[in-house]
Amino acid sequence: MTKKQVTLIATAAMGLEAVVANEVRALGYSEVNVENGRVTFSADVSAIPRCNLWLRTADRVKLLIGQFKATSFDELFENTKALPWEEFIPEDGEFPVIGKSVKSQLYSVPDCQSIVKKAIVDRMKNKYGIASWLEESGAFYRVEVALLKDVATLTIDTSGVGLHKRGYRIGQGDAPLKETLAAALIKLTNWKPNYPFVDPFCGSGTIPIEAALIGQNIAPGFNREFASENWGIVPVNLWDKAHEEAEDLANYDQPLDITGSDIDHRMVEIANNNAIEAGLGDLVSWKQMQVRDFNHKRDNGYIIGNPPYGERLGDKKEVEKMYKDLGHALQNYPSWSVYILTSNENFEALYGLKATKKRKLFNGFIKTDYYQYFGKRV
């Protein structure tokens, strides 16, 4: 059961599709199609381990099995059954079916899931010559049927747990930033590892830790497992090669000047523990500090932060003061570039300066703006 050329979908949070597409291209896959929420590309099957290990800003990597129009359950069943499932799933494979439906005539997701499941079972029993039931005692293949405007897209998830789960976060605060979004915030700047990097609202340390991983070119998936590691279509030697490549490309000797600070000493301790878990204990400096006390000896640094938004009424005044303090402290650092993610629409007025550029992003379900201030180079 081997299949060399596959079509993959790297799913992306809204607003980050172009960032994910750039990462896919950087891995050498040039035939890239960018749509809302996803980046589709064709590649050799070796792309499954490589993309899972290396994509910093994608949510998942899915294997596309087929796509077709379906306005009736008969159409959904017959078109699903016509797909070559046996080329991907072995006869003992475990394959639960999940689903979603948006603006489609087939709106009952449970019905769609059960029909897709039955169609795959019928196909596989026929192809494998099985008269009774399928055991489903082997490797895990999570199938998804996604209906959008009456077009059904059938995929198998290669990642397992979402790619934001790097494996290093052993502690977190109340509203942790997803690792994938943290990496994207850095990717949306032109920071290079020879510049100082500061997150003055570090919380559990996600942004500085992701910066250290980027700075030393460490694959974000180095410390975790993936569903497709047990698949027959992805031989073990391809996973071994992908891990060897990640080890060879890591630049552990790259010096870094990365600092994470927070007003809460408990969060500073959690951030430090997370960095140690990531194997980056010596690479990031952590300190308890208020933003108004920001100081740095070097020119041309970068501040990237996800401060509290003041969504809760009681926090609003405190947060607004924090934004003012930040703007006041950074008046003395005109050569530094500043990037702040917040949902607070008055940020520019509070900070005291209009952003050079703004980008709309979502932090979970919260609409935010990424305020970008480009430093004056000296």
Rank of each mutant, 00 (worst) to 15 (best):
M267L: 15
V45M: 03
T206L: 06
D299T: 15
F77V: 15
V102A: 03
T40L: 13
A139F: 02
N344K: 03
T180R: 10
K192S: 12
G364C: 02
G167D: 01
D315H: 05
A227W: 07
V109G: 02
K127C: 03
T57E: 02
L147R: 09
S337A: 02
R56T: 12
E135R: 09
A82T: 12
Q331H: 05
R169Q: 00
Y323W: 10
R142K: 07
G173K: 09
W286A: 06
I258G: 03
S159P: 10
K192V: 15
N223T: 01
N126I: 00
R142S: 04
F347T: 00
A119C: 11
P110R: 01
Y333K: 03
L326Q: 00
N223S: 08
K297V: 14
L326T: 02
P193S: 02
I186F: 06
N306E: 08
K324D: 13
M1G: 14
K357S: 14
C202K: 08
D293A: 05
G279F: 10
K297E: 13
T80K: 08
A139H: 06
M289V: 03
Y107S: 11
H265E: 12
I65H: 06
I98H: 00
S72W: 12
T155P: 02
M322C: 07
I214C: 09
D282H: 15
L213E: 13
G167S: 01
D325I: 10
P200F: 10
G66P: 13
N300R: 13
K69I: 15
H296Q: 01
M267N: 13
G260Q: 05
